[in-house]
C-alpha cells in the first residue's frame, strides 16, 4: 500500500514536470498554427526555424558570448580563488561576501545595476556590455568551485615542489594546478551553462546587435502565436537530454572502473 502511494506520488510529480514540455513537443509537429487544434503532422516549423536568420544569428551570439565570458571568468576566477585562499581572515571574508552578492541578489537588481553603470560611463549597449555583464555573474561560480579544492589540497605541496627544484611558476603548474583542475573544470562548465541560459541580466545589458537566443525567445513568446518556438523547445530539449545522458553514462562507467580498480587492490 505504502509503495503504491509513493509510486502514484512520483508519477503525479513527473506528470506535472513533463506535461508542459510534452505539449510543446507535440505542438511542434502540428500543422495548424493554433496551439490547441490538431490538424495533421508537419515538419514545416522545423524548416522555418532553421531558415530563420534571427534565430540562427542569436544562437551564434549566445555561443560566442558564453564562450568568451566563461573563459575569461575561469581565468580571473581561478586566480582570484588562489589569491583569496592566501589572504588574511578579514580581507578574505570581505572579498567573499562581496563575491556572494551577485548570487544572492535578485537577478533583476544585478541587471539594473549593471545597466546604470553602462549608462553612467556612456557605453554603447552591445557585445561589450553583454560580455562584461556575463563575466561578472560567472566569476563567483568559478571561485566557489575552485576554493574548496584549494582547501582540500595539502598546504605543503607547493613548498615541497619548490624544495625539489621547481621555480614558483613550474611549482604552480606541476603541483597546484593538477590538484584544483576538477574545480576549475566544474566552474567553467557552470559558468558556460549559466551564461547560455541567462535571460534577466542579458535583458538589461544587450544591444540591438547582440541579441542572444533567450532575448529572441522572449520577443517570440510576446507574439501570441509562434509555432517556431515549439520546434525550438523540442530541439533544445533533445540536446539537453542527449548531454545529460552522455554525462550520466560516462559517470556510471567511471564509477564502475574505479570500483574495479579499488576492488583489485583490496
Amino acid at each position: 500500500m505504502k509503495k503504491i502511494t509513493s509510486r502514484f506520488y512520483l508519477a503525479l510529480i513527473f506528470l506535472f514536470l513533463y506535461a508542459p514540455i510534452a505539449v510543446l513537443i507535440v505542438n511542434s509537429f502540428n500543422a495548424s498554427k493554433s496551439r490547441t487544434v490538431w490538424t495533421g503532422f508537419t515538419l514545416d516549423w522545423y524548416r522555418k526555424l532553421l531558415t530563420n536568420e534571427t534565430i540562427i544569428n542569436s544562437l551564434g551570439n549566445t555561443l560566442l558570448v558564453a564562450a568568451v565570458a566563461s573563459t575569461v571568468a575561469t581565468l580571473i576566477g581561478t586566480a582570484a580563488a588562489i589569491g583569496i585562499y592566501n589572504m588574511k581572515k578579514i580581507p578574505r571574508s570581505i572579498v567573499l561576501n562581496i563575491t556572494y552578492l551577485p548570487i544572492l541578489n535578485p537577478e533583476i537588481v544585478t541587471g539594473v545595476s549593471l545597466m546604470l553603470l553602462f549608462v553612467a560611463v556612456k557605453m554603447e549597449f552591445g557585445f561589450t556590455t553583454l560580455i562584461l555583464s556575463h563575466i561578472t555573474f560567472c566569476v563567483p561560480y568559478v571561485i566557489l568551485n575552485v576554493l574548496p579544492k584549494l582547501r582540500q589540497m595539502n598546504r605543503n605541496l607547493y613548498d615541497a615542489a619548490m624544495d625539489l627544484g621547481c621555480n614558483p611558476t613550474s611549482a604552480f603548474f606541476k603541483a597546484v594546478l593538477p590538484e584544483i583542475m576538477p574545480g576549475i573544470v566544474t566552474g567553467f562548465l557552470m559558468a558556460l551553462t549559466y551564461s547560455i541560459d541567462d535571460f534577466i541580466i542579458s535583458y538589461f545589458t544587450y544591444g540591438a546587435t547582440s541579441q542572444t537566443l533567450s532575448i529572441t525567445i522572449f520577443s517570440m513568446t510576446r507574439r501570441k502565436v509562434s509555432p517556431e518556438v515549439n520546434a525550438l523547445s523540442a530541439i533544445i530539449f533533445a540536446v539537453v537530454l542527449a548531454i545529460l545522458l552522455v554525462m550520466n553514462l560516462r559517470d556510471a562507467k567511471l564509477r564502475k572502473n574505479t570500483r574495479r580498480v579499488s576492488g583489485e587492490r583490496i
Binding site: 508542459p20 505539449v23 510543446l24 541560459d197 525567445i217 513568446t221 523547445s233 533544445i236
Partner: peptide, 18 residues
C-alpha cells in the same frame, strides 16, 4: 533537473498553452 535545463521562458510559454 532535466526541465530546469530548458530556458525558463520556454517552460513558462508551455504553461500558457496549457
Amino acid at each position: 533537473m532535466l526541465p530546469m535545463w530548458m530556458n525558463f521562458l520556454l517552460r513558462t510559454y508551455a504553461w500558457m498553452t496549457l
